Computed example of a mutant assay.
Amino acid sequence: MRCGFDPYDQLVRYKCWHKNGYMSSTGKCFAIGSSTRQCLNVFEQRQRDFAQGNKISLEDLDSFNKLEILNSFDINCGINDATDNEGLMRRASVPLLFHQDPKKAVEYSGRSAKIIHANQNIYDACRYYGALIVAAIQGMAKTELLDPDFYKKQEDWFGSELLQENVRKITEGSYKRKNGYQDDENTFEEGVLAAVNRGDNTDTRAAIYGQLSSTYYGYKELPSRWVEHVYAVKFITCMDKWIAYQSERCFHSNQ
């Protein structure tokens, strides 16, 4: 397995999910957003063109690993006017894998979203979200994660690309308005229930809260009666350990 960020492989796996239900708890793709669907259609067409132009079998292209050839493949298939929140719903694995290098974790959190959602606001939101997950892994307190000056204090993680103004305003606390913000009472369980029971796009609320808060609270704080009913829990636990192993391996191989 190669170390590093591999957006082509990411798109291949999304395509497998879309076509064959890869890693889906139901065995088939469900609840795919329009932006992701459009992006994958573009990706598949580019694969067909690329295979023909480089005389590569289309069947072999998903597992093709000759980087000197793949580097010329345009992986930016994202939709510029995308406004959905799917990018945030599936970001955690990126900062978890690259957390030992916060700058890379933030950069790749954004780039891994941008290949699907080219909207700059989504890109910046995912970068900031990745930074929060890295900070949670580092053991920062909740007050530090929610600090309106968190971005300023960790600005070096974001490199030369500043956050868009409307995203920055959210990081500074604009979300703390009546009926728009609720404390989790310092437990993962209460936080998830609060997120879901507020209604209105509950899967999104739970996914975004769950990724960050489970990182903050840790596996042992997840309700055991919930964990035992998670689909393929042993496989997911194994994948978690693999991410931790790969994180160490990739970080030290780049030193």
Rank of each mutant, 00 (worst) to 15 (best):
D9P: 02
Y8M: 07
I170K: 11
R168A: 09
C238N: 10
I122H: 01
G159Y: 13
S25T: 13
K104W: 06
I115S: 08
V196T: 04
G27M: 07
F188A: 07
R13Y: 02
E228L: 06
T204F: 09
Q120I: 08
Y14C: 00
G180D: 02
D147S: 14
Y216T: 11
E59N: 12
K19Y: 13
I170P: 06
P223K: 13
G78C: 03
V42K: 02
G53E: 10
I133V: 07
P148T: 01
K55D: 12
S109N: 00
Q182S: 14
D62S: 14
A92F: 14
K103R: 14
F251Q: 08
A125V: 06
D200H: 10
G21A: 11
E161Q: 12
Y108K: 05
R37W: 07
G159Q: 09
T187C: 12
Q10F: 07
W226L: 09
N186W: 11
I75Q: 06
Q138R: 14
F188P: 12
D240R: 13
E228D: 11
L67R: 12
N71G: 14
H229A: 02
D183R: 12
H117R: 09
K19G: 05
K176C: 09
V192I: 15
Y175R: 12
Y175F: 15
K142Q: 13
K178W: 09
L132E: 00
A195G: 11
Q45E: 14
C126S: 04
N76R: 07
G159W: 14
D81C: 13
T187Y: 15
S253P: 04
A131R: 04
R13C: 00
L40Q: 03
D183G: 09
S174M: 06
D200S: 09
Y216D: 11
L58Y: 15
A31F: 14
W157P: 06
K169W: 04
D84W: 08
G33E: 03
I69Q: 10
K153C: 01
S109R: 05
E248A: 01
L11T: 04
E248S: 05
F98R: 13
D240G: 13
P7N: 00
A118V: 06
K220R: 12
V233W: 10
T171S: 07
V12T: 01
A136Y: 13
S112P: 02
K142L: 13
I56A: 07
T215Y: 11
R249F: 15
L70H: 13
L88Y: 01
